[in-house]
Each structure stands twice: as C-alpha cells, then as structure tokens.
Amino acid sequence: MSSSSVCSRDVVVALENGLHMSPSAQIVQTAQRFDCDVRIHKGDKTVDGKSMLDILTLAAQHGTTLTLEASGEGAQEAVDALEKLFVTNFATE
C-alpha cells in the first residue's frame, strides 16, 4: 500500500560548503519525482522543496538541521529518497 499522509524527518547538512547549488538541484530533482507536496523547514522558515530558488534562500550551512516534510501521495517514499541524499552526503560535493 503506498502512503498518502504526512511524513517528516530531521536531517543534518554534512556538506562542508553547505547546501549550495548542486545539492539543492539534487533535492529539487528528487522531490519532483513525487506527486506529493514537499516542504523543508529550517527553524521557523519553510520553503517549497520543489523550488530551487526557495531552497537557496535557506542558506543552510554545514551542521544545520533541516526538517523534511512531505504530504500526499508517496509522502513516505519522498522523504526516504530525500533523506538518502543527506545521509550519502549527496554522493559527492
């Protein structure tokens, strides 16, 4: 059964140079594979995880904790896929 709900998870930016443009593009490309809404929270700031401009406004430096949140069809899978980017440190920097 595919999920259709809200799913959220905390991740830490381990990239030495922070969440710059290439990893942000990877987030957008991953998020866009899913139909659900994707939001990223940094403190009290919330942005659209499918928008490059939005993500870049986070200026998330090394060590920053972000909360990934998805709602709708495939929310769980979307958060899993996005979390994997952070866990693998976006494969390369």
């Binding site: 710059h20 939005d54 406004t57 200026a59």
Partner: peptide
Amino acid sequence: RPGDHLRALEGISRHLR
C-alpha cells in the same frame, strides 16, 4: 569563504522570487 557564497545565493534567490 563558503558562507559568503551561500549568503550571496540566498540574497539573489530571495529577490528573484
């Protein structure tokens, strides 16, 4: 100065929105 780069991107993208 990776922090400066991130803050510049933040400024640019905030206005471009």
